[in-house]
Every structure is written in C-alpha cells, then in structure tokens.
Design a protein around this nucleic acid. Structure first.
Length: 117
RNA sequence: CCAGACGGCCGGAUGGUCGCCUUUCGGCGCGGGCGACCGCAUCGGGGGGAGGAAAGUCCGGGCUCCACGGAAGCACGGUGCCGGAUAACGUCCGGCGGGGGCGACCCUAGGGAAAGUGCAACAGAAAACAUACCGCCUGUCCGCGCUUCGGCAGUGACGGGUAAGGGUGAAAUGGUGCGGUAAGAGCGCACCGCGCGACCGGCAACGGAAGCGGCAGUGUAAACCCCACCGGGAGCAAGACCGUAUAGGGGCGGCGCGUCGGGGCUUCGGCCCCGGCAGGCGGGCUUUCGAGCCGCCGCCCGGGUAGGUCGCGCGAGGCGUCCGGCGACGGGCGUCCCAGAUGAAUGGCCAUCGAACGCCUUCGGGCGGGAACAGAACCCGGCUUACAGGCCGUCUGGCAUU
RNA sequence: UGGGGAUUGGUGUAACGGUAACACGCUUGACUCUGAAUCAAGUAUUAUAGGUUCAAAUCCUAUAUCCCCAG
C-alpha cells in the first residue's frame, strides 16, 4: 500500500484550513483542502463532526465512516503536500457508502486536488 | 387460564474481508553504552478492547495540591422516626408510626408548635384571645291591643343569662343519647374520642395498660426559628517531570576610549577639524577619571509559554465456593488479570440468520420490515433520568377442573 | 470540572402563599363609501412531574431546555 496519510491533530491546523475558505459541500460531507507551501510530504487529513450531526453515538459513527472513506480514497487520489478536512453532515450516517465515495471524489475534483493514480 | 405485585437477568447472532488502539513474544536493521542493557524503525505471531445506564453531575469516598495548632467555636450549607450495614453517604437493610389497596404489596423530609416571632386571603358575629350577629330564656319601664279587671299575648327601649339552633369557612373551643334547666351548658351520667399516665414488653423508635382528669394552648417549621448530627478549601485542566527559540530573568568572566602628520582655538589642563596608519563584533550615555549604566561575547543558575512524558489502572477488583447474619453485609479458601484513547482507538464494507412492529390471510402461513436508550476520558460506592423487546423465580386475587 | 441564574398569552415584562396584571400584537364586531385612528369583546397547561399547605406562578424535590461566569 502507498504511503498513507497523517492525521491533523492541532486546533491551529484546522483553523488554517477554515480561514482559507476553500471548500466544497456535497450531500454527504464537506471538504476543505489547502496546500502546504514548501512541503511535499504525505497528505494530512482531519475529521470533524460537530454537535449538529447528533448525539455522541451519531458523531462517532459519522467520524468513523469518514475515516474509512479517507483510508480508501486519499492514498490513491489526493495530491501530496496538501491538508484536507472532512466535515460530517447530518446525512453522513445514513448515506450509502458508495455515494459517500462519489461525494468525496467530486469534491476533490472541484477543488483541483485530484490526482489520477 | 385471566388480572396483578415483587425480585433478578439479558439487551441482536454468525461468518468473510480491509483496518485501528493497547499489551506481550520473536526476527531483521539503525543508534547509544566497556557491559548488563536501553531507544528508534519495520515485519510476523499471541492476548485484550464501551454500558446497564458509560449519560445527568444530585450526593459520598479514594487520590493530589493548598491552608493549619491535636483542636474548638462562629457564620453558612446539608441531613432529620429507631436500630444496624459501610471507607463514607442524602445510599442500603431490618423494624416502628401514619396513609392507600380485597390482597400480594406500595407510598411516606416522619425531631420540636406549653422557647419565642410571623402568617391564616375571601366569607363569617367571631380566626387564636377572647368574644355574641340572628336566635333562645328572663327582669324593669313606657305606650298600644284584648279582658271575666285576676291578668294575657305581641311589640319597642334598657339590662341580665346562654353557647342548644342558624349560616360562613380548609379550620368554630369534643361527638351521640339520657337526665337537668327559665333557657341552656361536661352542669351530671353512660358510651366513644382526647390529655396525663403508675406499671409491663422492647437496645430503641414504639406498643400495651390499671388508674386519673370533665376536656386544657387550631394549623403552619418544604415560614423565620430551636435541638441533634455532618462538612477546612480546591479539583486529574489536581499534581509531578522534561523542555523549542530570532522570547525573556539572575550571576560570574571577558570585550572599549589607539596613534602619526598638518591646521585652528586655548583659561596652557587640553579641545576641535582634515588626512594617513593600525585594530576590531566592539556602539551609545554619564563621570568625582576609580568607574558606572545600557550593549556584545562566553559559561553557569532558576522560572517557564508551544509541545511532550508521567499521573493512568492490582482495585473498598471480578468469578466460584464454604461459613456467620432475617437482611444490607462480613469472613475464609480457590481462581483470574479483564479498555486505557487524547481532533480522542474499540471500527468500515459485504453476506446469512433474525425479535418487535405493519399489511394480507384459506389461520397453515405469506409479504414488508429490519433492532430500544445510548459511546469510557483519574478511579470507586450510590442516587436520578432514558430504554424496543425478551427470559427466569416467588407471591396475591379471580374463574374453571380434579 | 466547578459555580450562578432563567423559563408566565404570539412578543417583551409584572404579580407580600389567597380572582395571573400591563404594553404591543393577533382575531372578531361596531364606527366609515373604504382604510387608518378610535371603541367593545376575545386570546394562559404560569416549562414538565411529584410533594408540603385549607390554598402554590410563588415553598421543596426531581426532570427538560436555555443563558452567564471561572479555569
């Protein structure tokens, strides 16, 4: 398997992507992406599930589905040297997994961070 | 069989595949160390990986830091029948009193109202300390009416007795009956209620009770309050350790007022200007000419923001069994090690099976449907709240049968 | 984690334990040729559930939602 991705863990890193205002929303999720100048390392991914998604069980489940989604798509198609944040929405829990995959691919293409194999 | 009461337990299952966190064992590699070994990276194998409420944060404790004098008291807050259990509790167990239910059983903040203060709307005559609106009985006086002239009944004014009756209210100074009386009244008597209560049972709460008292002060303390008991304060973001820099504190040591030529001024000490040479990271200010302050360089020390590590899971521990106890619980023995994350692991996807529930039904079943409440964050004991559905046991009432 | 507070018509606020008040709004009617203004009437599970009390928006307990403060 290719070099996977690292996780975003610092609040400042999340805020950097939020301030960039470069995002694309789909029914299943919202994607934020931003390049890291002068760094061509592995992509880094952060996951967010706010209280609007539901109670703790729904939030955990939404985050875990997004994590599984990232494990499947990011290593293959994400451009290196970029940070990504996947934000859960209310529909994330109930949406079919294949539709979530399409959502993420669409969002990545729209933000011009798509990389063909 | 129907209806119900109480207690306990479970709370989706199986498989495939791809992953995550932690722990342990082994292999290879790199780095450090004389070495035992330690650290890092990677690969492979094994073990473990959400709950009965993990939730709300309403109590109690452990643990840590702060304060302190072994404490005690005041304030404030809490608890509140009695006894026990416990590390402790507002929890639990057993018992008592009161209330509810045919019953099993359930509910119960349930100390003190003759220590004091407050409050009791409206209605009612009167609402807590004594009283009298209507009424009932009665005395005196005046007038009127009737009269057989003896009085009689009614009415008015003033006075006395009374607490039966009336109506109000949540609550009205015991209730019923008989006697009694001018009318009445525990005024007297009987029964019931109430108060005190020798004595008896019980560790106690409390229960029983001879006898005494004609009955005495209604309620409210989840109003203030009194009494008894409990509580020092803060919380794992506690607290400890490491510690980045072009940030910053302290100490020690080091780094400077060069010289030559020409000109000008002079209080004759020096000062200024121009040029050359040498040196350096070496600049600025003050000076009593010793130096001082800022500064720069080196070394050392302390604090410490980003961040990291520990705290962090062997414990009032789980399971089994025996003993003591009505029980909560306690004790002995055996056995097991059983989550530890930190933008936060405990999962994603697929398949099969599947309870509830809904629809249809020829009552055999068929179709749909797909699992409630909910996710550890230092730990433990409780309480409270949420929860589809299912299982087990004990007991009560009713019906039927024997 | 610790502490404090709020919840009353549609909205914003009142109410010593004793008929839930006020303003604006809304609805209906009157007045007007019509509208505005005006007048009249209506508009409440006092967040929910228990308890104390003769009586609870008020006192107590639990629950739900929301807000604020400190770290």
């Amino acid at each position: 398997m290719q070099t996977a991705f690292e996780r975003l863990t610092r609040r400042a890193e999340f805020r950097r992507l939020t301030r960039a205002r470069r995002r694309w929303a789909t029914p299943g999720l919202v994607l934020q992406a931003l390049g890291r100048p002068g760094d061509d390392g592995a992509p880094r991914v952060g996951l967010t599930a706010s209280r609007r998604v539901g109670n703790a069980v729904r939030r955990n489940r939404a985050r875990r589905r997004l994590r599984a989604l990232a494990e499947r798509v990011i290593p293959l198609h994400a451009m290196c040297g970029h940070d990504y944040v996947l934000i859960a929405r209310t529909a994330t829990v109930d949406r079919p997994f294949t539709a979530l995959v399409e959502d993420l691919e669409t969002a990545m293409k729209r933000l011009n961070v798509w990389r063909d194999q």
